[in-house]
Structure formats: structure tokens, C-alpha cells
Design a protein around this nucleic acid. Structure first.
Lengths: 322, 322
DNA sequence: ATGAAAGCGCTAACAC
DNA sequence: GTGTTAGCGCTTTCAT
């Protein structure tokens, strides 16, 4: 920048002011500085800028995965709001490992971000400590079943499970099964299952069958799991899946085997993915406002409201599979 | 850090060396410094570190969208390699706007990243200038049809279109239609279409019909487009879609309307998405090595090979829809 | 409206 | 093996 100042024949601080369009400067100097910067191909150094001033335009975002469209949707919502406000996202992916999350938090914090967004409420004790002591706004997303550190934006997964169970029960299904993916790592899916079981119990029911794969969720896993489950428990009349990816797999299995949906078997998912909504029979599922959660989280991150919980609820989609 | 040094009773540089486990230090001092850092809850400041030394651990990655799983897959591949090497990704999303890309490049460059990865070869003149002059490794991903700036990792979209056309022709289809999405913005989809048309022409054929939506690709758009196209051109016997999202939509339309696939109508997609491969009839498509392209790009970004083009080819999936 | 000078928190010589 | 001393490229008082 001193080169620019010299080329423009002004002092460094003047150049700095002009380049940041801050403070006052005469139209002439402004032109000289801007011209010099363009001529020299000057690219500012935000490292130095941020170090000298305070607060960066970096926002750390930590998600467990990018393989499931849910998290890209979240990033998309957040990115749109942050980008428009001149902020950039630094992404970290934990792979559903709490320890990995802890390392990411440390690493991102060392960049002195203006704020941090993280999926979920479950963290290691040290992660919570680091986040609470960071002195920046922390937003936890996608879950409201538990204690937040600062700002929380999401919905109750437990309630989502409950609502799904009540829906199936109201439709008259009684021999209800569950098909899920690695619940040890995906705590939110585990909470949905808990809520689901609780609502079944309230109606005097219990799970007729269950198949939980060890892998992450996928269409293929859902398809295979339903095949396995029906072989062992042919009397099941409805299946609740841990999410739409799994449920779509189940639906494909039914189509392939000629299993009538929902008369012979009802299917219920979670997320309201595009692909599930446009299937020949739209999947019955809960639509989650993923993009909106990302956007709202970003907005609250940049605002300075007091800490609190914002609920953006899911919506029951009465599809054709239940 | 000076606090840590004082607390440990050593000099600043000693503390720095210990904290970065670089250079030599006696076990005792090391322990003193580490203890002091832990006691004080010291969080390093990478801004200062990077400014004082050289090269950050930040890598800029620019993609056009996060709505299509293709790009999260790319980020996933890159993120895994970068994360393991201690690098962090700063993500920018252009929304398929060249001007937005230019701003992002400028903005990311101001963070002095160690390297930059960007999807595609088409950029504004100024973007190319900025990238070429940045003095860091630039990797362009997903396309090899054109001039790269530095390192290029991908495949030929033109060739992908060609291969798809030849496949349909070899199978005996002659009244072939195309269904696509906004080609003005998605240049790679446009190149596939070009290659497709070229191969048709080589066989003395031309497009029997075409429907190009103005929106981005989606299952719903594909479904509606096929509906529209068949209403106008009922004699079509095969459709090439701009990607799998669109093709799955088309497939769903056929299932819903009882259109026999592939006897009455053949369908061909692009990408080899999970959901397409597990459909009752696996979609005929080209599987693209998206995660591998991301990973390879990251690897080459960190290596210092000479500039060049690395081809990771697509693979023809002979599904049940053609 | 503009310039000079003092750091921001760290790393990198360089001495010891 | 360890401490001292300059900066890295900016922003920010504080004068002028």
C-alpha cells in the first residue's frame, strides 16, 4: 500500500482511507489514489488490515458432512446472507467426529473470525469452553433439544419424531418399523427416533421391527435395509426412515418389487428433499427449512440480539406414501 | 503470546518455537511453555503468524452453486485432502455469475491464500489476470475443453456429450431429444450439448426435439420438461438430459404416466448420482469422478508440479433406461 | 482533508 | 538452546 501512496503522491493513511472509502477525502486525492492502485494492480492484504483493526470479515462454519444435501443447503442459506454483507465463510467438516470438531473450532478461532456457526448442540466439554470464551457470536443450528451456548436456530428433532409417529398412528398403521443409519454419530437422527418411540409408547405401541445400518445414510442403504427388514418381518405395515435419502431407497425397493404403497406398506421420511417431493408418489415426510435456518443463523450472527433460541419449524408433507 | 512467554519465564521467540514445535528446545522449557499456554487459555493468532511468516494455510475454493450435489462432492474431496494437510477452505459461491466470480477472486486473494481452486475454465478477462498474477497455484476443475491458467483437473464435457450420443445411436434410437437447463450460465452443460449434437450430426442425425428450461436444474424441472416435450413431440424415442437431476425427473414422469422405459422411451443422464443408480431401473448415465477431482485438485494444489492438465475421465453406466 | 508515527501479534534472522 | 530485534502491511490516533 505504501507503493500506492507513493505513486499517488499522498501519505499512507490517506491512501488507506480512500481505499476503504472511509473518513473524508477530496475528490482529487481519491482519484489519484484509485488510479495509482489500478495502475499498480494493488490487491489489499486483509491479513494486515484485520490485524491492525479489529474483527475480520471471516465467519467460521462447521458442519458434520457435505455428502447429505442438508448441509450444503444450510451453507447456501448462510452464504447468501453473509456474502451480501461482505463476509466470507471458512468451512470445516467434522465427519460427525466430536474430536474433529474440537480441532476445527481451535483452528478456525485462530483466524479470529467475526463469528462461528456450528451444526448441533453436542460438543466436547473443551469445545464448549473454547466457544464460550471466544468472545464472538456463536450460532448453533438445526437442533433445539438441549442447552445452547449463545444463539440457537433450528427445530426440535424429538418433536419431529413425535409428529411423524402420530401421523402414522392417526392413519391407522399399527405394525410400524424403523429404518435408520449410524445413530451413534448422527445425534439429531437419534433424537428423532427417541421422539418417535415416545409417541408410539403413548399410544400403547412399540416398534414392530427395526433395521439400523452402520454407514451414513444413502439411497442404497435405505433400499437394502427395507429389503432385509421385510424378509424378516413381512407383517410390517409402515416404516419410518431416519431421513428422505433412506426413505427414497425404500420407495425404490417397493417400486422394484411391486409392493403397493401405501396400501401394503406406508413410508415416511424426513427432510422434504426435492427428489422426494417429485417422485411418482410424493413421499410423506417432514419438510425442514434448511436454507432458511442457514440464512436466519447468518442474520442473527451479524445482528447483536441477546442470546436465545429461534425456532423455524418443520412442516408435515402429506405425500402419497402414507 | 508475550503473556505466555512471561508466564513461562522464557523469551517470546522460544515460546513461539515451542508452540509451533519447530526448531529445538529443551524438554523443560517446552513443558513450561505448554503449561503456561494451557493455563492462560492461549489461542494463537494465525493472522499475525501468517503476516509475519509466509503463506497461509487457507485455500480459496470457488464454485458456482451448492444446490447441486456435484459441488459439495467436489468440496468434500478437496476438503478431505486439505484438512489432512492442515489447510482450511474458504468457500465462495458465484451463483454462475462471472462478475460475482471476479469479486470473489479479489476478495479471496486479499486473504493471501496458499492456493485457489475454481470450477470451470470460463472467467472474465480481469479474473484471469488476477489469477495469473496472484503468484500462487491455481487449479481449475471439472472441465478440460479450453485453455487453463495453471493446473487443470477434470474431463472433456464435449466428449461426454459425444459419448452419450454415440451410446444412444448404437442402441438404435433415432428420434432423439434434448432436455436441459439454463445453458447460458452453465457452460459445461452447454459443452455437453454441443458434443452431443456434433456426434448426432456425424451419424447424419439431428435433434428431434428440445426443451430447455430457464431455471437451474432440478428433479421437478426435468419432470415438467419431459411432460411438455412429449406432448409436442410424441414420436421421440430417447431423451438426453443435461444432468441426472433432470433425468430422474424425466424418469419419475414416465413412472407416473406408465410410459415404458426404455422400450417406449429411453432416458440418458449425466453425473451418476447415488439416487439415479439405485432407482428401480438404474439410470443410464455418465458417472463423473467428482470427489476424486476435488481430491486430486487439492493434491496438485499442494504439490508443486509444473502446470498441466490432468484428466479423470467419466465412466459410462449402462443402466436400464436405454 | 491529510500526514507521521505507533502498534496489531506474531516469525525470522541473528547473536549469544 | 534461547533471547533480542526488526519487521510483515495495514489501521488508527493525533497533529496539523
Amino acid at each position: 500500500m505504501s507503493d500506492v501512496a507513493r505513486e499517488a503522491g499522498v501519505g499512507e493513511s490517506t491512501a488507506s482511507r480512500v481505499l476503504r472509502r472511509q473518513g473524508s477525502s477530496s475528490p482529487e486525492t481519491r482519484e489519484k489514489v484509485l488510479g495509482a492502485a489500478a495502475r499498480l494492480g494493488y490487491v489489499p492484504n486483509r491479513l494486515a488490515g484485520t490485524l491492525a483493526s479489529t474483527g475480520s470479515n471471516l465467519i467460521g462454519i462447521i458442519v458434520p458432512s457435505l455428502a447429505n444435501i442438508v448441509f450444503p443447503d444450510l451453507l447456501r442459506g448462510a452464504g447468501a446472507v453473509l456474502g451480501a454483507a461482505g463476509f466470507r465463510s471458512v468451512i470445516g467438516v467434522t465427519d460427525y467426529e466430536p474430536d474433529s470438531e474440537e480441532h476445527l473450532v481451535e483452528s478456525l478461532l485462530s483466524w479470529r473470525p467475526a463469528g462461528l456457526m456450528v451444526a448441533g448442540l453436542e460438543h466436547t466439554a473443551r469445545t464448549r469452553l473454547l466457544l464460550a470464551a471466544a468472545g464472538i457470536r456463536i450460532v448453533e443450528m438445526l437442533d433445539t433439544d438441549g442447552e445452547g451456548i449463545d444463539t440457537v436456530v433450528g427445530f426440535s428433532n424429538r418433536e419431529a419424531g413425535r409428529v411423524s409417529a402420530r401421523h402414522l398412528i392417526a392413519r391407522g398403521y399399527r405394525r410400524i418399523a424403523y429404518i435408520g443409519h449410524d445413530l451413534g454419530r448422527d445425534r439429531r437422527a437419534a433424537k428423532r427416533r427417541e421422539g418417535f418411540l415416545a409417541a408410539l409408547a403413548e399410544a400403547g405401541l412399540s416398534l414392530a421391527a427395526e433395521d439400523v445400518v452402520r454407514t451414513h445414510s444413502s439411497v442404497g442403504a435405505g433400499r437394502e435395509a427395507l429389503d432385509r427388514l421385510l424378509a424378516r418381518h413381512p407383517a410390517v405395515d409402515a416404516v419410518y426412515f431416519s431421513n428422505d435419502d433412506m426413505a427414497i431407497g425404500g420407495y425404490f425397493h417397493c417400486l422394484a418389487r411391486g409392493i403397493a404403497v401405501p396400501t401394503r406398506l406406508a413410508l415416511f421420511g424426513f427432510n422434504g428433499l426435492d427428489v422426494a417431493r417429485h417422485a411418482p408418489q410424493p413421499l410423506s415426510t417432514l419438510l425442514t427449512p434448511r436454507v432458511a435456518i442457514g440464512a436466519t443463523s447468518a442474520r442473527l450472527l451479524l445482528a447483536d440480539d441477546p442470546p436465545g433460541v429461534t425456532t423455524l419449524d418443520f412442516e408435515l408433507i402429506e405425500g402419497a406414501t402414507s
